[in-house]
Nucleic acid binder design. Structure first.
Length: 597
RNA sequence: GGCGAUGUAGCUCAAUCGGUUAGAGCACCAUAUUCAUAAUGUGGGUGUUACUGGUUCGAGUCCAGUCAUCGCCA
């Protein structure tokens, strides 16, 4: 019985390009998970999109002297191309500035208001008369009232690390207009009363105790145990989703409140886009459906506490009964550092995906990242590791296995899978071992232990290499052709199985192996960039079309006589010089290059 | 400052409920092999399990403390 699997992926802020941290933290794990479930025959809905709002985008826009909209549209477009190139298979990757997202976010706000989960409160904040607005914390600098560091930011002091209340800063000033004297002014905001969900959240944790990562569970319980306070959900800014109430024209929904709704709103958009407006309910109002949130560790409370609380608060929305799906698991990853140092946009200590995609195969980047996934603790992307793992593992163990046996078979058996009489016990033993991997690796992926799953598959590839050296068909063929035929057949079938197990991780090269083995069709569907029109504006999105996908998470039944295709080297060998070259880019000014598919 | 996590071989990581001599891959050395992109196989491990102390017949694992790193919160 196929399951409904919702893959909710963190929404990147559209204020800069995607980097390996994004890939390792959320997008690649989500894609591997989704591709596996598609092969396994489950109904997958994987959605995400660009977070168009929020102060990081306004800050970037001000820095460049352009509008927030132009910043987010620029990076949204680059997100689409980058992810298409590296094969992140979203059913829909949209953004939060669609009419659809605005409308539903406002409906959610109004539903929570009606049901008594929101309240109003007055706050005092810093106001700029020059800009005629309340300044977000990130626009403010001043002297830290704890350590007296003179250049503390409005929300945090970089010297002593304390989180700060901007109003209490000594001599606070605007970053845009440092000469201006800011005034403290009162404003009114709506708050989300999280405390009302305390018991429901604890019950929700109990239900999922067994399968969440321990650190995620402990952290979430602790967050609730410390006491849930109301959180402001509106702000005095002009870039964002309007508050749908009379007299609130000057305010917008706070980005933390509306961005997480994207998992839900994008599901509805997807259903509309495919012309089946109720299709989203198979995931969101189906007690058998499982929702997985792929995020980074900095986002845990938003996905295990705040988002579930929002969902509980709107349960029954757009439907005739309650039972909305809460996240089934939140497999948060830790961080991916770079050459021993933390990612930093301002220092350009970063590995940008659009840049490295011009130099390396998508599957090489996917392989190294997945082999290093920060599932249990922070990991470190270093170029020497990349060189070694791509050359010795991906190429040496797997690429070479494919190449050595497919070329041998292609040359010696007239381009066909050889026929054989009966397999020996050694052949049967190898196939049994390899075939067992399908269940083992499937189980690991379902449990979101992706690094283990990949390692297990590579271990099996090593087994096949050992078997081949042991059986040596290139010698046997001279004396016992019948035996050589069964060895080659056995190896090809093992490769066929391994191709399936590796496909979620290495979709591009698995497709090539699939073709070399003589199969037709695409293992996976196609990723396309589409443009969708709403009443007042259009937007582009990345969509996955699985209509013609033929891949199955199933044992190989390779037929003797099947015509092979001439194989070519699967993996490009990397030169040692890349290590120094790539390291030289770190920390240096970067020019954004055009993304060419 | 509070909470949570992490620290194991040169590197990247394992080690189920506390149980044999702490294991794999990479790198390195030796060797076999020539089907394969010099790619593969086999053999080769003297580790203060960050540190200090404790519980126990027995601790990488449990407890207390210290140090370093990361995240969240104040």
């Amino acid at each position: 019985m196929p399951k409904h699997i919702h893959v909710s992926v963190a929404w990147p802020y559209a204020n800069g390009d995607l980097h390996v941290g994004h890939l390792a933290g959320a997008y690649l794990p989500a894609d591997i998970f989704a591709r596996y479930h598609r092969l396994a025959g489950n109904h997958v809905l994987m959605v995400s999109g660009s977070d168009s709002h929020g102060t990081p985008i306004s800050v970037e826009a001000d820095k460049r002297g352009v509008t927030a909209r132009s910043i987010f549209e620029h990076y949204h477009e680059r997100f689409l191309l980058t992810q298409q190139k590296i094969g992140i298979s979203y059913d829909l990757f949209t953004h939060t500035d669609t009419e659809n997202h605005h409308r539903i976010a406002q409906d959610i706000f109004l539903t929570l208001l009606e049901r008594g989960y929101l309240y109003k409160e007055r706050q005092t904040l810093l106001y700029s008369q020059i800009e005629q607005r309340f300044l977000p914390d990130r626009y403010i600098e001043g002297e830290c009232y704890i350590c007296h560091y003179p250049k503390a930011r409005g929300d945090q002091c970089d010297n002593c690390g304390s989180l700060l209340d901007a109003v209490k800063l000594i001599n606070p000033r605007s970053r845009n207009h440092p000469e201006e004297t800011l005034i403290v002014r009162e404003t009114e905001h709506y708050f989300f009363e999280l405390g009302k969900f305390t018991d429901a959240l604890l019950a929700y944790f109990d239900k999922h105790e067994s399968h969440w990562r321990p650190q995620v569970m402990r952290f979430s319980r602790n967050f609730v145990a410390e006491g849930l306070r109301g959180r402001p959900i509106t702000r005095d800014i002009d870039w964002g989703i309007p508050v749908p109430l009379e007299g609130w024209d000057e305010k917008r929904l706070y980005v933390w409140f509306e961005a997480v709704m994207g998992y839900f709103t994008a599901s509805l958009e997807w259903a509309n886009n495919i012309g089946q407006p109720d299709a989203w309910k198979a995931w969101w109002y189906n007690p058998e459906a499982e929702v997985y949130n792929f995020i980074g560790k900095d986002n845990v409370p938003f996905h295990t506490v705040i988002w579930p609380a929002e969902l509980m608060g709107i349960d029954g929305i757009y439907h005739d009964r309650k039972g909305i799906s809460l996240p089934y698991d939140v497999p948060a990853n830790e961080f991916m550092n770079i050459e021993g140092d933390k990612f930093s946009k301002s220092r350009n200590w970063a590995i940008w995906l659009p840049d490295i995609l011009t130099r390396y195969q998508p599957d090489a980047i996917r392989y190294y990242t997945a082999a290093m996934f920060p599932e249990t603790h922070d990991a470190d992307f270093d170029w020497e590791g990349f060189l070694n793992r791509v050359n010795s593992e991906l190429l040496g163990t797997w690429g070479n296995l494919v190449n050595r046996m497919l070329s041998f078979a292609y040359k010696r058996y007239e381009g066909k899978v050889p026929d054989y009489d009966a397999l020996t016990s050694a052949d049967e033993a190898l196939l049994t071992k390899i075939e067992g991997g399908l269940a083992t690796i499937g189980g690991l992926i379902e449990a979101v232990r992706l690094r283990d799953a990949l390692g297990t598959a590579m271990g099996l590839a090593r087994e096949v290499n050992a078997y081949l050296n042991n059986r040596a068909p290139w010698s046997v063929i001279k004396t016992d052709p019948a035996d050589a035929a069964r060895i080659v057949y056995t190896t090809l079938r093992a490769i066929d199985n391994l191709k399936t197990m590796l496909a979620p991780f290495l979709p591009f090269t698995s497709q090539r192996v699939h073709e070399y083995l003589g199969y037709d069709g695409q293992m996976f569907g196609e990723l396309r960039i589409e443009e969708y029109a709403e009443s007042s504006r259009t937007h582009k999105a990345l969509v996955y079309d699985g209509t013609n996908a033929v891949g199955k998470w199933a044992l190989s039944a390779l037929q003797p006589g099947q015509a092979l295709r001439e194989p070519k080297a699967l993996i490009v060998k990397l030169e040692p010089e890349i290590v120094e070259r790539e390291r030289s880019f770190l920390g240096q000014p970067r020019v954004e290059g055009e993304i060419v598919l």
